[in-house]
Design a protein around this nucleic acid. Sequence first.
RNA 1: GGACGGGUAGCCAAGUGGUAAGGCAUCGGCCUGCAAAGCCGAUCAUCAUGGGUUCGAUUCCCAUCCCGUCCUCCA
Length: 492
Amino acid sequence: MALRLYNTLSGKIEEFQTLQKNQVRMYACGPTVYDYGHIGNFRTFVAVDILHRFLEQSGYTVQHVMNITDVDDKIIRNSSREGVPVQTYTAKYEKAFLEDTLLLNIAQPKLARATEHIPEMAEFIAKLEAKGFVYRTEDGSYYFRIAKFPAYGKLSKKDFGGMQDGARVDVDEYEKDSARDFAVWKAPKPGEASWETSIGPGRPGWHIECSVMSMEELGETFDLHAGGEDLIFPHHENEIAQSEAYSGKPFARFWFHPRFLLVEGEKMSKSAGNFYTLRDLVLKGHKPSSIRYLLASVPYSTQLNFTFDGLKQAEVSVDRLRNFRLRLTSGQFPAGANPEMTKLAQETTDRMRAALEDDLNTPQAQAAIFDMARTANAAFDSGAVKQDDVPALLGALDKFNEIFAVLRDDDAPKIKSIAEWAKAEGRDISQELLGLLQSDALSDEQVNGKLAEMEAARKARNFPVSDAIRKELTAAGILVENTKDGVRWRRK
RNA sequence: GGACGGGUAGCCAAGUGGUAAGGCAUCGGCCUGCAAAGCCGAUCAUCAUGGGUUCGAUUCCCAUCCCGUCCUCCA
């Protein structure tokens, strides 16, 4: 079997195929760095990351490029309002974005910054102009002539054939030949950032950077292009027009568009008061792993309802799997092997693979691992898990984690950097976050020392002392479990 | 208004032409010095509403209501 993916271009689920065997070349639209990333942004980036990880798990080498849009109207407006150069302004948010992706265990793609490719964009536009796809207006802007590109609309399934260019043309854009034509290059305006180039001064239009950078990094035709569903039109439609007009060849073969999320059942918006950046959530005391898990719990192809209740549930779910893993790594098992367990691990791995191959059905993959955990936990209790079964079970869990990336107990160190940032920015830090930070306060040695004391007290049946120590450790975010095989612990 | 996607238990949700995964929550039990973790059992779904097709629909078709995305710069 192979991965079957919904392709926006064909409007169908298709078998994913690459141009070169075992190699994927993909381009994902990244952030416009004008503010901190919100959870909607990260829903998209997590979805793309899951695709990336599953492709690697499937044996592909993945060449993954992501743009950083570091010049646009909003950036120019905000930076001038703050009185700082564009680069200073964008550097801050780019840094924050990259830290955020680390928080969520998003594998880092190769980055391509718009402002570092301005000369190439100018050349690209010059060639399009030479081919007649682009025209220059009196003020020095350049527009793409949609009428020259009959396939326009094939991605968004819009029919522009019957469109009449009416008299209803935007006042600012009176020079365009057709209202539908879009800017590939914007003439400079007083006080705005602009670049001197071979086609004159100005700055790039919104779409040109992606055409230029993706083709530069991945070739004129590559395997997959991703971005939020809102980018289908006009952004990706325009990219296709520019790129295919330029090269005369098909641009990306697969188009991957994660759907939007809702927050508490409603559209996320600042005015509705349900707008959250990733950092907002962390400051409220939510773990990055819970957030990632929740974002991955609904297929990318359907809308996700992001709720705080769901976030709590996600944390408990992740804990369950972490506990299961702890049992596997710290337990003592009778010698030998139980074929049932090996079979269970294999079936689980197969189920997860089949689920993900089915257009990345993440909840079914999760169901498979939970089924395994339940069955294996029951087998644990009855002593039916043997030494030789452990690697197989752990292996299935690892396969799961290669995709979902939530099982490491590393939330506390990650949160620490956010807490420091919050302090520097003068943001409020919740009690919950302070509590989470606690779990990193004691070193492994200190924890083990306390545990030794506790065990000694328990052996002496000095329960008041052992209970006091347990309480102390719990307060420090350490979960202690006493089992018949001895004591084990992990950071909550 | 047009195009498209969705409405499944208290919550998040998968899925199917033959009455429905998984997680969370709730209740009871087992285990346990306590706790934690785990297991077992139970409760919980007329699958938005109204029609139609069919031996049979939650799954296909139509209508209605609701939600979301896009219809030029929002992931």
